[in-house]
């Protein structure tokens, strides 16, 4: 018995939780879940494969802007995220947060699920480049709304595959937009409300292939690209890019700009907050 307790204590310390009263069983539970979030061939394999494409969208958009603004074509893609403050809302197991942190951004991942945050922390601690006290990556169990009370604002706010899960999308979008510094960027990814999206993400993925747990998605919560664009009508020139899965290559890729039907299922959204605060997204009707 004492041996058990001893090893459990070691285990707890090894997991570097900030809370000394954390239950060893819980930690073990998180570790089990962690291996699922980070099982590249398991339930989250679609997300793992999607991740590089999401990073590419973010990186290339920032690169495009940086080159335009500085009139300098020599800015390298690996440099654009360096030293930016990035907030990842709904970070889950930390797939996007880790990648963005590796590209040099000071990344803060938040998630409403405490277990997700524990999972993300455990996984990051295994990577010598991201493990604490790395200045590049931190996690916090909180909601986006509660961050509003802190004065901290971010150069880039990302919220990937979250919008279709929240109860009040308008309020969520306003919160995200408020957390962006003036002149900063908001990146979202979500699923459009189309028959195609229903067929692929719910009928095929959940019901037929059972690649994704049943009940993961609800059709009525899906949001169309135009609805997002309309929401941010006071912002200049929002952009939408389709995200297409090629089952033959088992790879995601960005749809060509303005490809017909490209944004009918998964898509990425980018908008830039005006440098002078003329509206913070609450302009939504």
């Amino acid at each position: 018995m004492s041996i058990l307790r001893h090893s459990a204590r070691r285990f707890v310390r090894a997991l570097h939780t900030s809370n000394a009263t954390v239950n060893a069983d819980e930690i073990a539970h998180f570790s089990r879940l962690s291996s699922q979030w980070w099982d590249h061939q398991g339930e989250f394999s679609f997300l793992h494969k999607m991740n590089p494409v999401r990073v590419q969208f973010i990186r290339d958009k920032l690169l495009e802007i940086a080159r335009e603004e500085n009139d300098d074509l020599d800015i390298q893609p690996t440099h654009v995220l360096r030293d930016l403050d990035v907030l990842d809302v709904g970070c889950g197991g930390g797939l996007l947060s880790e990648s963005v942190a590796r590209l040099g951004a000071r990344t803060h991942g938040v998630d409403a699920s405490e277990s997700n945050i524990s999972i993300a922390k455990v996984h990051a601690s295994a990577d010598p480049k991201l493990s604490p006290p790395s200045p590049f990556l931190s996690y916090e169990h909180t909601s986006a709304e509660s961050l509003l009370t802190s004065p901290k604002r971010y150069d880039v706010v990302c919220s990937m595959e979250v919008l279709e899960h929240v109860d009040n999308p308008a309020s969520f979008l306003s919160t995200c937009a408020t957390l962006v510094k003036p002149g900063g960027h908001l990146f979202l990814s979500t699923i459009s409300r189309t028959p195609l999206a229903y067929a692929l993400t719910i009928f095929l993925a959940e019901d037929v292939l059972r690649k994704v747990s049943s009940g993961t998605h609800t059709y009525s919560k899906f949001i169309k690209p135009n609805e997002l664009i309309e929401f941010f009508q006071n912002y200049r020139d929002p952009k939408v890019r389709g995200l297409i899965y090629n089952p033959l290559l088992a790879r995601w890729h960005l749809a060509a700009r303005d490809a017909w039907g490209g944004t009918d299922c998964n898509y990425l959204f980018w908008v830039r907050k005006p440098a002078l605060e003329s509206g913070d997204g609450s302009a939504a009707s």
Binding site: R59, E98, L103
Partner: peptide
Amino acid sequence: LGGDIGSHT
């Protein structure tokens, strides 16, 4: 793309 170069993905 900030990936973990040792990962399966």
